[in-house]
Simulated assay, not measured.
Amino acid sequence: MSKVLVLNASYEPLNITNWRRAVILLLKGKAEQVEHNGKCLYPELMLPTVIRLRHYVQVPYKEIPLTRRNILHRDNHSCQYCSYTGDELTLDHVIPRSRKGGDSWENIVTACVRCNVKKGNRTPKEANMVLRNQPRQPYSSLHFEVAKHIKNGSYQEWRKYAIGL
């Protein structure tokens, strides 16, 4: 039915859960409601869209793997040079491998075949091409999920709790 963003006691996003689990956390007193969508479950209980845990939960840092799928997702499945969105997308090294450009979040972007061939073995500046977005490592896998829901147009109230959106 509806998703609920779970925040740590420090207001950082922890998880996305379903509305039933969120209501259980609220009723047990383990969380408090931060945002709701205006729909009532009971006269005194609104359907939550964002809840915050009352006690801080220590979360271990988990690095997101550098994969083609994750890079395409980070770049919103569009060419970072011309905004093309289609099936013919490749990965491009901003600083070419032949010039000691390695495989890192900050050096790989999504590019269409046309732009990738046009850029060739040059830097974007040398090829007179401008990157739409500076490549960077994503904050977390949860950030990916939250961004997807916000970009779909749903859950706009989550925007203020997500870094960089």
Rank of each mutant, 00 (worst) to 15 (best):
K118D: 05
V59S: 05
E88P: 00
K119G: 03
K100Q: 14
Y161M: 11
D75P: 06
L91A: 10
V23W: 03
A111V: 05
G38L: 08
P60R: 15
Y81I: 03
E35D: 14
V57D: 04
D75R: 09
R54H: 11
P124F: 08
L45F: 13
G164P: 11
G38F: 07
Y139S: 07
R54F: 06
R21G: 02
K148A: 12
L26P: 01
E126F: 09
P135K: 05
E88V: 00
N116D: 06
G38W: 06
E88C: 00
K39C: 07
G101C: 12
H143F: 03
P96H: 07
G102N: 12
S154E: 10
T110D: 03
T49M: 02
I24M: 00
G164D: 15
Y139R: 10
E32C: 04
K62V: 15
K62S: 10
P96C: 07
D103Q: 09
L53V: 04
H73K: 13
I163A: 12
H149R: 12
K125P: 00
R21K: 12
V50D: 02
D103G: 04
K151E: 15
P48W: 04
R122L: 14
R99P: 09
S154H: 03
W158Q: 03
A127D: 06
P135H: 06
N121P: 10
C115P: 03
E63R: 15
I71T: 08
L131I: 00
V113N: 12
E145V: 11
D92N: 06
P96N: 09
D92M: 02
N107S: 08
T90G: 04
G101E: 11
A22P: 00
R97S: 14
R122Y: 11
A162K: 11
I150P: 06
Y42H: 13
N133E: 13
T67W: 07
I108G: 01
Y161R: 08
S140P: 01
A31N: 02
E106Y: 02
G102S: 13
K125I: 08
P60D: 14
K28P: 00
P96M: 07
T90W: 02
I163L: 14
H143Y: 06
K125C: 01
Q134S: 10
Q33G: 03
A162G: 02
S83E: 12
N76Q: 12
D103R: 08
I163M: 11
V130A: 01
E35V: 06
L27A: 12
L72Q: 12
L25W: 05
K39M: 11
